[in-house]
Simulated scan of single mutants.
Amino acid sequence: MAGTTLAYDRAGSGPPALLLHGWPGDRSDWALVGDLLEADVIRPDLHGFGESAPAGDPSAAGQTAALVALLNDLDIDRVVVGGYDVGSRVAQTLAATHPDRVSALVLAPPLPGAGRRVLEPDAVAEFWYQSFHQLRLAEELVDGRADATRAYLRHFWDHWSGPAFTVSEERLDRLTARYARPGAFTASIGWYRAGAGMVRASLAEQPPADRLATPLTVLWPEFDPLFPRAWSDRVGDWFSAADLRPLDGVGHFSPVEAPQAWAAALTEVLT
């Protein structure tokens, strides 16, 4: 439709659920979760990712505007939003700027509250890639090079996932095909170049005068090296109705690693 600038999959019937992926992934991150839901499931590729690359504004504001246009085109007034990684940040922006469109949030980190802890040695050792993505060298070494892209993606999927999860070669093949197209990798790191990465966001954050009232379920993984559970201690400073739940045995890619847990949490707020 005319206003839609995002590629997306839509399947199922029932209350609508909008599921937002992370980096380095795409809308297929939510395929297993979507199959478990009795809902009208919408899974877009965010701007700069998958089949939505390279066009569009990669910032949180630009991603939010594209999602509102998508909901308008689909004639959806209110929606439950699930998200992790980049998708979590975008979902929070959508709920904060368009609270009338979001009935509930189900999110994995990042959530606000890390503050200057993001500069601690262990965190700096994990978030190096966000500084690397600011350099032209990143695109010169990776963009358009299938072997380099696959190796780069494999590093993150291996390092960030939980100990019981191994990324499949099929998933790596699909993501490599998406990210290795000329310009696609550079488009995907546009999110970080737009200033939306964890380090910048954490150093700039301040608790709002009025906390976000949208009901929030937080699924915090046990083995995500980027977001230790200690950083969950200030979620209530930003959200007035937050239900914080541990997601044991799981790493960063929680919708892929634990689709049943995600489906259960989403089902609670969809019904």
Rank of each mutant, 00 (worst) to 15 (best):
M1P: 11
G3H: 07
G3L: 09
T5H: 12
A7L: 04
A7V: 13
Y8H: 15
Y8M: 02
A11L: 12
S13H: 12
S13P: 05
S13Y: 05
P16K: 02
L18M: 12
L19T: 02
G22A: 13
P24Y: 08
D26L: 10
D26I: 06
A31G: 03
L32W: 03
D35S: 08
L36F: 02
E38M: 04
A39C: 09
P44H: 00
D45T: 02
F49S: 01
G50I: 08
G50E: 04
P54V: 09
G56F: 11
P58F: 07
P58Q: 08
S59D: 12
G62L: 06
G62Q: 07
L67A: 00
L70R: 02
D73N: 07
L74Q: 14
L74F: 09
R78M: 09
V80I: 10
V81Q: 00
D85E: 13
D85P: 10
G87M: 10
A91M: 08
L94M: 07
A95I: 05
P99L: 08
R101A: 13
R101I: 14
V102S: 04
V102C: 09
A108W: 02
P109K: 07
L111G: 00
R117G: 15
V118P: 01
D122F: 04
D122C: 04
D122H: 10
V124S: 05
F127Y: 14
F127T: 03
Q130A: 14
F132D: 01
F132K: 02
H133G: 01
L135P: 03
L137V: 13
A138I: 06
E140L: 15
G144D: 06
R145H: 14
R145G: 04
A146P: 12
A146H: 12
D147L: 06
T149K: 06
R150H: 04
A151G: 12
L153W: 01
F156W: 14
F156R: 13
D158W: 14
D158P: 06
P163V: 05
T166Y: 00
T166V: 10
S168K: 07
E170Y: 02
R178E: 12
A180C: 13
A180S: 15
R181A: 14
G183M: 05
G183E: 08
F185Q: 00
T186K: 03
S188L: 02
S188G: 05
I189W: 00
I189T: 05
W191H: 14
A194M: 02
A194Y: 01
V199M: 08
R200C: 11
S202A: 15
L203W: 03
L203R: 06
A204G: 12
E205Y: 01
P207G: 09
A209C: 03
A209S: 13
D210L: 06
R211N: 11
R211E: 10
T214W: 04
T214D: 04
P215E: 06
W220P: 05
P221A: 07
F223D: 10
L226M: 11
L226G: 10
S232A: 15
R234Q: 09
F239V: 08
A241C: 06
A242E: 06
D243E: 11
L244W: 03
P246C: 02
L247T: 10
D248K: 07
V250M: 02
H252D: 13
F253G: 00
Q260A: 15
A261I: 04
A261K: 03
T267V: 02
V269R: 01
L270D: 03
T271W: 05
